[in-house]
Simulated scan of single mutants.
Amino acid sequence: AAEFVLPTFTAPIADIAGGDITLVGTGAPGSEIEIVINGEVVGTAVVGDDGTWSFPATLPAGDYELALRAVDGSGTAVSTDPFTFSLAATAAAPTLDAPVDGSSVDSGELNFSGTGEPGSEVEILDGDVVVGTAVVGDDGTWTFSTTPDAGDHAYAVRNRGDSEAAASSSVTVAEPAVAAAPAVNVCQEPQPGIDQGDTYIVGVCEWLTRIAKRLGIEYFDLIGVNPQIENPNLVYPGQVINLPPR
């Protein structure tokens, strides 16, 4: 008779979340193994030709005691020593509340926000690339900011360690605005006007205070003989104004 081989349990060991999992181990090829969890038989598995077995199970988060039972050559059921393991709680799926799906935004900093399981870490993806992470606060919210290139972006979020996105948002980022050319300051090259005795032809970049100072006359006298000028600070090149007696 073939030598009896006591089955073993190899996975999972730790650091996985509760839910749909697969128990894995080894044993004698062709033998049938009973899986005992917390003292109850939950199913059986047949060891394959390669000496391995697997058993799918749905287990919530918590602590577990696993034992394996097989029948030896004499027909006696033999159980392994119990093995304990724990499954962590599954974090709630994060949401992506901003930016809104289908929105168009200006270039520059783009702000993200959403909700999730307090203390969990959220990954923010642009396509298949993780562009950043955020830790969910005690109030159940998270935020993140980045400055994307112009164009269409397919953003998504997921809990760190997950392979599937929990929420997504398509966003179009506008091209950066082109800065306007600086205004030309016509006063960079002032040109004095022409003194005609009783009148004066205004030059480039001149106003009444400058004209009065240049001609050595009183400013208020110059205003007094030019009642037609409503704004003393606004005269134009080529404009003819009156001059007071000198």
Rank of each mutant, 00 (worst) to 15 (best):
C187G: 11
G51D: 02
A181G: 12
V235H: 03
A181E: 15
G108T: 03
P232H: 03
Y155G: 03
R69M: 06
G25I: 00
I229G: 04
V240D: 08
P12C: 09
K213R: 14
T8F: 09
P12G: 10
T8G: 14
L66Y: 00
I223K: 15
E230C: 05
T10E: 12
N242Q: 14
G43K: 01
Y64P: 05
L222V: 07
T95P: 01
P118A: 07
T209K: 13
F144R: 04
V204K: 11
R69S: 11
R160C: 06
S170Y: 09
V41W: 03
P245L: 09
T76F: 08
T44Y: 08
G108W: 04
A150Q: 09
V157Y: 01
E117N: 13
A180D: 11
E189G: 04
P245S: 12
S103R: 03
P237F: 11
V178I: 14
P94G: 07
A180I: 04
E175D: 13
Y64V: 05
V122Q: 01
D101R: 07
S120C: 10
G224L: 10
D138M: 07
Q188E: 14
G114Y: 05
N185E: 10
T84K: 12
D221L: 08
A2M: 12
G140N: 05
Y219G: 06
A183L: 15
N242P: 02
A174W: 09
A179N: 10
A14W: 14
A70W: 00
D126G: 07
L125S: 07
G127E: 04
G48S: 11
D162C: 13
A89C: 09
E117A: 15
S86D: 06
S79M: 14
I124A: 09
A45S: 03
D72I: 01
V136N: 01
P232W: 00
E3K: 08
P182Y: 04
E109C: 07
G102K: 06
V186I: 14
L125Q: 05
S169M: 08
L96S: 01
V157H: 02
N111H: 14
G216T: 07
E32C: 01
G197F: 03
Y64L: 03
S104E: 15
G203K: 04
E65G: 10
R69V: 00
G73I: 06
T95M: 07
N185P: 05
N231Q: 13
V178C: 07
F9M: 06
A93V: 04
E121M: 10
T22Q: 13
W53M: 02
F55E: 04
G151Q: 07
P118F: 03
A212T: 05
V78P: 01
D152L: 15
R160P: 05
L208P: 02
T143Y: 10
V105F: 01
P192E: 01
A134P: 00
T147W: 06
T133F: 06
S107K: 06
D198R: 13
D50H: 06
G114R: 02
Q191G: 10
G151E: 08
L234C: 12
V41I: 15
V130M: 12
V71F: 08
P94W: 02
W142T: 03
T76S: 14
N159V: 04
T76R: 11
A45W: 00
G137K: 09
T143I: 13
V136T: 04
Y219M: 07
T209V: 15
I16C: 11
V173M: 01
N111R: 15
A17H: 12
I211E: 00
G197Y: 04
T147K: 12
E189H: 11
T22W: 08
